[in-house]
């Protein structure tokens, strides 16, 4: 009873900290708007993002096409609106997948120790031997570029990060009394992990996940710019920048607007992630 009260008051403090943190608030609002845009893309976009108008290719902005058209005569605004879907789907689901796989691996390694731990953590070390983008380029090249494969690719890049984080946090709380107590009364391992360990490392994972959504979106854009992204004609911001750069002299808007969209989205998630961290980590609160 007393414990719940303390938790409630803690939670209230966290929320008020969050609300006072203007950066986080702005980040959250922008992120929500972008999510809404992605969800309601079919309603919001004035045109079908794939519809071509061969007579209005590379048209400048006009009343019919607010941001103009690209070299296939497709409406840029509609493509940017639809592009949010790909970025968000890839960004969020790859991080979730990485979070799931990484946390599981990290917790298993941290809980059982011994050979299992060595095997898992060495495997993680191997993946960490490559810079993110380099690993992502290699994996996409092998799998081939489509939406699902890109999610898998980026999840593979994210997994070791989450695994190390979960592993490290687990080791630090493992010896705490309540875990030891739960063990001594014979609680089963999954239950201990779920009931006692996970809630305690959850905050840290959540912060990391929010920040890494930004990283994942940027990875996707980088891959697209290299030519290893979701294959055209699917509208994605990375593809649009890449194709827009070719016709920069005709229609600078294509690259500039889609680049801005990526920038704003990543910025929003970074601001949100920073804010959530300040909220959870009391040391930094108000700092």
């Amino acid at each position: 009873m007393e414990e719940t009260l303390i938790m409630q008051s803690q939670r209230r403090k966290m929320w008020s900290a969050f609300a006072r943190n203007r950066t986080a608030l702005i980040g959250a609002v922008v992120a929500i708007i972008i999510v809404l845009v992605a969800v309601f893309a079919p309603v919001l976009s004035p045109y079908d993002p794939l519809a071509q108008d061969s007579y209005a290719r590379l048209a400048p902005s006009s009343e019919a096409h607010w941001l103009g058209t690209d070299d296939f005569g497709r409406d840029i605004l509609s493509r940017i609106i639809w592009g949010s879907r790909v970025s968000l789907i890839i960004g969020i689901s790859s991080v979730l997948l990485g979070l799931l796989a990484g946390t599981l691996l990290g917790m298993i390694a941290g809980y059982y120790r011994g050979k299992i731990e060595t095997t898992i953590m060495r495997g993680i070390d191997v993946l960490m031997c490559f810079p993110d983008l380099i690993l992502a380029i290699a994996v996409t090249a092998v799998l081939g570029a489509n939406l699902v494969n890109l999610i898998i690719t980026i999840a593979i890049v994210m997994t070791p990060r989450f695994a190390r984080l979960a592993h490290g946090s687990l080791l630090s709380i493992k010896e705490r009394e309540y875990v030891v107590a739960a063990q001594s009364i014979g609680a089963r391992v999954p239950r201990i992990l779920r009931k006692h360990v996970l809630p305690n490392i959850f905050g840290e994972l959540l912060v990391a996940a929010t920040l890494w959504v930004g990283v994942a979106i940027r990875l996707e854009a980088n891959l697209a710019f290299i030519g290893l992204g979701v294959q055209p004609p699917t509208p994605t911001w990375g593809n649009m920048i890449r194709e827009g750069v070719d016709v920069l002299i005709n229609a600078p808007g294509i690259s500039i607007y889609s680049g801005l969209s990526i920038l704003v989205t990543i910025l929003a998630f970074n601001m949100l992630g920073d804010g959530v961290r300040d909220m959870i980590d009391p040391r930094l609160r108000g700092a």
């Binding site: 950066t23 930004g214 920048i241 920069l248 680049g259 990526i262 920038l263 990543i266 970074n270």
Partner: peptide, 22 residues
Amino acid sequence: DYFNRVFSLLGLSVPAFYLGIL
């Protein structure tokens, strides 16, 4: 402080290829 923090967040968020083109 706010300016610097937003500036560094921008630095973290902008894709290098986009910044390069600009």
